[in-house]
């Protein structure tokens, strides 16, 4: 090729166009010619993932700790003592979980513990406030996080009315048993926020969320828009409540009382 000015300009033009195209969308920006991407063959999909927790079957601290252990070990969630801790799913009493305390409650409900986790809200305030789209909503209703992008401003923690989010105040690996890590999943780094991810990485390969799997059927996961799904069946047959419905965030986690 002649190194003429004309060729140079042509090259520049192409490069500029390429740059525009690359930044216009992440459509196969760099990958080799002819490559493409597609869904995993075993993935399970939904229009709106949701969860129903039968608190009669899973309503003690011990039972919920089993779920927490299952979740926290597949996701390498550190066990940090004190108030700078990280939790994806945990147990709390009725008054802490729901903002509609009743006087003279049924003793069994009063003493019951409830599994709390991110609600994957339809109108999620955490998504609304995040300045970098590090927290974002997937089309299937899951509120996901991109830890690579999070700047750790913690606006999402102030925005979440359910206390579902934790910040990595310190190096999380200091509080993990490094010999028993799940090597298929990353840890997090200091300075980012994290929370339950409804096990997106498992759904992509047809697996149920870890807590549901460990719950002996007390936690059921499925598509809320599918009238024949098991979650819908449970919602039809039982009276359920959600956390803080008055705030209009539309939680995707339902509790059978």
């Amino acid at each position: 090729m002649n190194h003429t000015r004309r060729n140079f300009l042509k090259f520049m033009g192409v490069a500029a166009a390429g740059l525009c195209a690359a930044s216009a969308g992440s459509a196969l920006a760099v990958s080799g010619a002819g490559s493409s991407i597609k869904d995993s063959a075993t993935a399970v999909n939904a229009k709106r993932w949701g969860m129903v927790i039968d608190t009669k079957k899973c309503g003690t601290k011990e039972a919920i700790d089993v779920l927490a252990k299952a979740c926290h070990s597949v996701h390498n969630v550190p066990n940090i003592p004190g108030n700078q801790n990280v939790m994806w799913i945990w147990a709390a009493g009725y008054e802490q979980a729901f903002d509609q305390p009743n006087n003279y409650m049924d003793e069994s409900v009063e003493k019951r513990q409830f599994a709390l986790l991110c609600n994957h809200c339809t109108n999620a305030p955490c998504v609304r406030v995040c300045p970098t789209q590090a927290t974002y909503k997937r089309p299937d209703g899951i509120v996901a996080m991109d830890y690579h992008r999070c700047i750790g401003c913690r606006y999402c923690m102030a925005g979440c009315p359910f206390g579902a989010r934790s910040f990595n105040f310190m190096e999380p690996r200091k509080h993990l048993d490094l010999t028993t890590l799940n090597k298929e999943f990353p840890t997090r780094m200091r300075g980012v926020v994290e929370k339950c991810n409804f096990c997106v990485e498992r759904l992509a390969y047809g697996k149920q969320p870890a807590c549901a799997e460990a719950s002996n059927g007390a936690v059921v996961f499925g598509d809320l828009t599918d009238a024949n799904s098991e979650v819908r069946k449970l919602l039809r047959e039982h009276y359920t409540i959600r956390r803080k419905p008055a705030l209009g965030t539309e939680p995707g986690v339902y509790y059978i009382i």
């Binding site: 300045p131 970098t132 999070c150 750790g152 401003c153 913690r154």
Partner: peptide, 17 residues
């Protein structure tokens, strides 16, 4: 000084929201 990952601060500009 408040944010956890100051070196990524420009993400606010790179991904305007």
């Amino acid at each position: 000084v408040d944010i956890g990952q100051p070196q990524r601060m420009l993400n606010v500009v790179l991904f305007p929201t």
